[in-house]
Every structure is written in structure tokens, then in C-alpha cells.
Design a protein around this nucleic acid. Structure first.
Lengths: 111, 111
DNA sequence: CTAATAGTTAACCGATTGGTTAACTATTCT
DNA sequence: AGAATAGTTAACCAATCGGTTAACTATTAG
């Protein structure tokens, strides 16, 4: 899915959201627990959590008045897959730009 | 660097920019070459390229009136590193939320 | 010199982002 | 019932995004 990567990378582009994800690596957590390390307001964190939820990186389970948040690493694995695929190719592309421009010059001479 | 990841992930969150990066995997390219596959205007592509440049994912070399763009995979490698580090932990966190909530319940009973 | 080519910059637009405060809903505790 | 707790929703704000068209700069070709 193409559009999924958009949302995943966008979700990862914010340091607060990355920190929340890192916290969730240690296990499920409540919204207020997740909010505690940050100086921003609770509604701000609430928005970040909703954002992560929409990106499919976080699952929420309501238990009474508490919302338990759980990491869903699936989309991150997809993002990792995309990057690994890129890496596979960029490692083969070791020709420098200088070399490339030299080739261009020679081609031009010969026409 | 914390802020670098912000810009890297943000750069990767747009499909046009990801496509440009994929094109650059095959080697350096001029701005107009990069723009060709897309239906959007040249200034739009110009902006994307500048964005990638600011994120450090792309290097530009002017050769006469032509701007040659080259992939700089460094920041992508950093992003990949961050994701791989996450993965290392999320693979150890296989406990389901249901289990977790059970534990919470029992802890509550015993207090 | 003039025309074409390569690309950027400027000004604008609507939508989204990341934050705020205030008010609200829902659940639990006493 | 009343108070405290957990969290969301609403309304707002300034900044950024992704796109446009129009105008501009710089280089190359005829």
C-alpha cells in the first residue's frame, strides 16, 4: 500500500510521537502515563496518540475510563522494508558524480 | 542527531519525494529528468528537490545551467538504524494486551 | 544578438500540523 | 450524591505543506 507509507513516515517525523512509540516498546501504557514525560498539554498528547492510531501504529483498548495503548509495529516494519529495499540499491550505486559528469562530457564530444 | 530524523522522516512521507529518491538510486539526474514522470508543475518538483536537499538526502551540483542531483543515502541509513533499533525491542515485546490487562486486574485484587 | 532551454523565485491558495485553553463525557472513589 | 480522575472534543492560532501561475535569472544554441 502506497498511502500507508505516507502516514507511517509522517507519524515518525515528530519527536514526541517517536518517543511515545519508544515508550510503548516496553509494553502497553495508559494515555496519562504516555503524557507524563512531556511538557506539552494532555490534549496535545491525545492528538499525537490519535495520529499514531490513524497511522495504524497504535491500538487502543478502553478499560473503564482508562485507555490502554499498545504498539502495533506492522507499519514500521513496512517502512523498514521500504528503506531496506532502497539500501540494497544505493549500495550498488557507488559511482561518484564527478565520474558521471566526465562521462557526460565525453559523450558530448563524440556527437 | 534528533532533529535530523524529523526532517528525514518528513521528507520520506511524500510519495513524490520517495519516487524522486528511487529514481536517484539509478544514478545522478537533472531536475527536468526527475520531473518528467510527474504530472505536477516544475516549480512543485523544484520545491520537493529543495526539501530533499535541506533534509540532506540529495546533493546538487551545478554544471552550466543544468543542476545535477545525486542521492545522499546517509540520512536514510540513520532512519533505518532508528527503525532497526525499534524492531530489536518490539520483537521481544510479544505479550498481548489481554495478558497485560489480566495482570493489572490481579494486582488490583491483591492490594 | 536573439531565441530557446534549465531551473528558481515570488506571490498566492486551501489544507494540515502542533500547540493552546476551556468545556465536556465517562468512570470511579468516598 | 458529590468529588476526583481519565481522557476527549471544540475552538482557536501561527506555521508549514503541496500545489498553482507568472515572472525572473542564467546558460546555451543558432
Amino acid at each position: 500500500m502506497e498511502i500507508a507509507l505516507n502516514r507511517t513516515f509522517a507519524a515518525l517525523s515528530d519527536p514526541t510521537r517517536r518517543a511515545i512509540l519508544s515508550t510503548l516498546l516496553k509494553g502497553p501504557a495508559k494515555v496519562t502515563q504516555l503524557a507524563k514525560p512531556f511538557k506539552v498539554s494532555l490534549p496535545a498528547i491525545s492528538k499525537h496518540i490519535r495520529y499514531l492510531e490513524k497511522a495504524g501504529l497504535l491500538n487502543r483498548t478502553k478499560n473503564g475510563r482508562e485507555h490502554w495503548c499498545q504498539l502495533n509495529p506492522g507499519p514500521m516494519d513496512e517502512a523498514l522494508g521500504w528503506l531496506n529495499n532502497q539500501k540494497q540499491f544505493w549500495e550498488n550505486t557507488l559511482d561518484s558524480l564527478e565520474q558521471f559528469l566526465e562521462i557526460q562530457k565525453k559523450e558530448k564530444k563524440n556527437e
